[in-house]
Amino acid sequence: MIRILLVDDHPVVRAGLRALVDGQDDLSVVGEADGLDTALTAVHDQRPDVVLMDLSLGADAVGGAEVTSRLRALPEPPEVLVLTTYDTEADILRALDAGARGYLLKDAPPTELFAAIRATARGETVLAPSVAATLVRRTSQPGPTVTEREVEVLELLARGLGNREMARELFVSEATVKSHLSHIYGKLGVDTRAGAVAAAIERRIIRP
């Protein structure tokens, strides 16, 4: 029996996933959590084999990638399968860097979800087709790719922050922010902040 913990901030979503998963003979939901603290407690108490992790856990909550990182740092960590609506480069790379074994989208059919859970429990990497395509596109596109730090700058740009505010958020100097912006403009082929945001969204580097 594969023991599963659901981490999602929407009770209705958790209830739907529980109903689906518990209908399988070899899968059992042993707990639910809506954020970091409840996830850590549930993992300690229930010892799940697989955690189904949403990335967006509320505006003021620690994100799913950070929760994944904290869970994977435990002495006997569960495997983590991300189940989310987001398939941008930024979200995918953060989740995988945090230690997620797989990345699936919430529009996946139930049979695909069940197979992904089983594969994750076996320690196999599972990627939704669009996620795999995004990673392939990132590695195969001509020219230099946008770095993780530059993605952070783009996300702050999309929020409308100025150079000073971005420097404060990233704990760097304004000169460093300007350097990042210059590199971003060159890589995306733009010359304005708005153009950089638009290009990053169009290329699915960051969320709209």
Score class of each variant (00 low, 15 high):
residue 74 L to N: 06
residue 205 I to E: 02
residue 8 D to P: 09
residue 169 E to V: 07
residue 173 S to T: 15
residue 52 L to M: 12
residue 99 G to Y: 09
residue 97 D to A: 14
residue 69 S to L: 09
residue 80 V to A: 03
residue 107 D to S: 11
residue 195 G to I: 10
residue 194 A to L: 06
residue 174 E to S: 12
residue 188 L to C: 04
residue 55 L to R: 00
residue 57 L to A: 07
residue 15 A to Y: 02
residue 80 V to M: 04
residue 197 V to W: 04
residue 196 A to T: 04
residue 94 R to Q: 15
residue 186 G to W: 04
residue 143 G to W: 08
residue 61 A to S: 14
residue 43 V to P: 01
residue 174 E to F: 05
residue 81 L to W: 10
residue 30 V to E: 07
residue 162 G to S: 05
residue 58 G to P: 04
residue 154 L to Y: 08
residue 34 D to Q: 08
residue 191 D to S: 15
residue 75 P to Y: 11
residue 20 L to K: 01
residue 188 L to W: 06
residue 172 V to L: 12
residue 190 V to C: 01
residue 208 P to V: 12
residue 10 H to R: 03
residue 115 A to R: 10
residue 99 G to S: 08
residue 99 G to I: 04
residue 82 V to W: 05
residue 115 A to E: 15
residue 39 A to E: 01
residue 200 A to I: 02
residue 91 D to Q: 15
residue 132 A to E: 12
residue 148 E to N: 07
residue 138 R to F: 00
residue 124 E to L: 14
residue 64 G to I: 00
residue 2 I to S: 01
residue 115 A to P: 01
residue 22 D to V: 05
residue 176 T to C: 06
residue 51 V to N: 04
residue 81 L to E: 07
residue 173 S to W: 06
residue 55 L to I: 11
residue 6 L to T: 04
residue 168 R to L: 11
residue 128 A to K: 12
residue 164 R to Q: 13
residue 98 A to Q: 08
residue 165 E to H: 11
residue 110 P to I: 11
residue 16 G to S: 09
residue 108 A to L: 05
residue 26 D to Y: 05
residue 110 P to C: 12
residue 1 M to R: 07
residue 48 P to H: 11
residue 92 I to L: 11
residue 38 T to E: 12
residue 12 V to F: 14
residue 194 A to W: 01
residue 196 A to C: 08
residue 187 K to I: 02
residue 26 D to R: 09
residue 124 E to Q: 14
residue 103 Y to F: 14
residue 80 V to Q: 04
residue 78 P to V: 13
residue 60 D to C: 01
residue 113 L to S: 06
residue 19 A to W: 02
residue 165 E to L: 06
residue 166 M to R: 00
residue 102 G to Y: 05
residue 44 H to Q: 13
residue 1 M to D: 03
residue 14 R to A: 08
residue 170 L to M: 15
residue 23 G to R: 07
residue 111 T to M: 11
residue 138 R to D: 00
residue 82 V to T: 12
residue 186 G to P: 01
residue 169 E to N: 14
residue 190 V to W: 02
residue 29 V to I: 07
residue 98 A to I: 07
residue 123 G to W: 09
residue 113 L to C: 06
residue 131 V to L: 06
residue 33 A to R: 02
residue 156 L to D: 11
residue 169 E to A: 14
residue 207 R to C: 03
residue 58 G to E: 00
residue 161 L to I: 00
residue 55 L to S: 04
residue 100 A to I: 03
residue 23 G to D: 13
residue 104 L to H: 10
residue 202 E to S: 14
residue 62 V to G: 03
residue 24 Q to E: 15
residue 102 G to H: 10
residue 28 S to A: 13
